[in-house]
Design a protein around this nucleic acid. Structure first.
Lengths: 347, 347
DNA sequence: TTGTATGCGTTATCAC
DNA sequence: GTGATAACGCATACAA
């Protein structure tokens, strides 16, 4: 049996409550006793029992992570290890532990969250995805349980805490980048429209085109699953158009990799024949051939901020709603160029 | 305040202990009371409090996951989301929850584990990495705390439970594959030699060469960090040799991607000029150009088996040491061919 | 400044 | 079959 507060108390010749106070570093204990008690703790190898502490204090110092469906290909995205790192660091800095829940189906995930929350395993929850209609969010709200979502919630975003990039702006700027290079036949290859990110980026793309007076070609917009095969299908469809696009905005690096492959297979050169920009700037963006111009959305920070603000919400009951926008940065590499018919205009 | 066992007891007109027995589905309770109590639980929306239960029963039904250093590039590997999925499924199937700990330095990780273990947050631990010298393992062993490691422990592997592939055999077979294609100038690009996998694969590679009477060229073996830049450096070194290799065994898909890029940059064609095989068979192996022949090590199963066997160990105090070998499979794609000077021999 | 007593929500050991 | 009651290890209100 592990050494408890009582054992320490006995050896140090004080009451258990005193030991407890020493642990909490209560100012009402004399330095002298503190020291003595601490010595005994060391000597006995005492470690506080989190479970007992949680029960007594009604707080676990643990935050729950809700992952997207594990069957979802999205889960394979290097995005996750990176947010995890940020989350972990943010939690760690405030001495919080991480608890996880996944599931294959939406129901499994939901049940997992309920068990975690009602079971009192965690003090708050962060959602690692942001879907269009979400039972989990509804549930959390109804119970008034602390949570923050990574990504922008689909509805009622004024009343829910989240940390996100300005994906609309990112979509817009990235498209403008292409326009400045001389492109006006720009396609958008997005992922699942259930995901809020996708639609935000799409909207930004459309805005940029409209701002520049470029016609919005419906055929230029392809939304499919977030991953590879679809990226490849999309390319085929796009290039068989009468007026194929000369540039593509792709909603995710991994998907862009698929696009790149398909293009290569079809004998189309990047960036000579078509330019590509994508999002997230995970490792593979840098490792692709050619290295991809990609939007660095600061994934680590997304996680870090999420943890930090959740903890604030937990510890301060009437903390106001937090909406944190993490800045992004377009990282220019070698996947973009001028369209073929582009003539540099000297002013 | 949440509804407790007492509330249920009151409404159902039974003692709290009875409710507890109903939850545990004790056979000593009549079906009739069980039903009534269950009805009340539903009606009141009762959910058991895990914390209280843990304290009373001295078991948390949670398993701790120890990640490698989050600063380590290894962490970026898609390997992790996949093991996580397996782990999660294995744990879930036995109603276990997942607890996580990461850290930047080895010390942070170690402290995290200690807190988790001594703090009684978890009933067992699985290590998601396997390093050459590891304090964590030493600590767990000394305390006789249930754990299993994913990957082969460096030392004392007869006395520690683990789940792993036969990486020696995999390294050997993959090399033999190359030999059969006619190669005899085969290089090995490995990762950090601190990682046990790397050395196992290397050993297998060497064995295959020796078996075939091929000279072991020291210059053909490059070990560096697990990731890209190094993969690229390695390639440069290898190809500047007098007798450059015609084939390469690369210890990881991600690294192979780097190799592929470097090769492309140097104008060397795969598989025409040099053949490549790699390990892990993550998504990018399939998405690389050309798609990589890679060893599918069944990452999901690695996680799944680890969870399952840890739980067995937890629940059965004198369960013997478990050593589980998950089978692998070479997935042949388009990165391997005959060496240029190869003449098909008709028998 | 320190000690005593009680409770946190369960499970488990006795009784009956 | 079911009901009291004592742990589990700690925090905290109240005493002293």
């Amino acid at each position: 049996m592990a050494v408890t507060i009582k054992d320490v108390a006995k050896v140090a010749n004080v009451a258990p409550s005193t030991v407890s106070r020493v642990i909490a570093n209560s100012p009402r204990i004399s330095e002298k006793t503190k020291e003595r008690v601490r010595e005994v703790m060391d000597q006995l190898g005492y470690h506080p029992n989190f479970i007992a502490r949680s029960l007594a204090s009604q707080s676990t110092r643990a935050i729950g992570l809700v992952m997207p469906s594990s069957t979802d290909v999205v889960f394979q995205n290097p995005f996750f290890p990176t947010v995890l790192t940020g989350l972990s660091e943010g939690a760690h800095s405030k001495q919080y532990a991480l608890h996880m829940t996944t599931g294959k189906t939406e129901d499994e995930i939901f049940d997992g969250v309920v068990a975690m929350v009602q079971g009192g395993r965690v003090d708050g929850v962060v959602l690692l995805y942001s879907k269009v209609e979400d039972r989990v969010i509804a549930y959390l709200k109804e119970r008034n349980f602390p949570f923050v979502v990574i990504g922008k919630p689909f509805k009622d975003d004024e009343n829910t805490s989240y940390v996100d990039n300005d994906n609309f702006k990112a979509g817009k700027e990235v498209t403008e980048h292409l326009i400045q290079l001389g492109h006006d036949r720009i396609a958008f290859i997005g992922g699942n429209l259930d995901l809020v990110v996708t639609v935000e980026r799409l909207l930004g793309y459309e805005k940029a085109l409209r701002n520049s007076g470029i016609h919005l070609e419906d055929n230029y917009i392809v939304n499919d699953e977030f991953l590879r095969e679809s990226g490849q299908d999309a390319v085929e469809v796009l290039l068989s158009l009468d007026q194929p696009p000369t540039a593509m905005v792709v909603a995710d690096d991994l998907m862009a990799l698929g696009v790149l492959n398909k293009l290569d297979e079809m004998g189309i050169a990047v960036p000579q024949d078509v330019s590509i920009v994508s999002f997230n700037n995970v490792l593979i963006a840098e490792m692709a051939r050619p290295p991809l111009t990609s939007v660095d959305i600061n994934i680590f920070d997304l996680g870090y901020q999420a943890a930090k603000s959740l903890i604030q919400i937990i510890e301060n009951p009437n903390e106001p709603i937090k909406r944190i926008i993490v800045p992004f940065k377009i990282v220019t590499r070698y996947s973009c160029g001028h369209p073929k018919d582009y003539k540099e205009v000297l002013v």
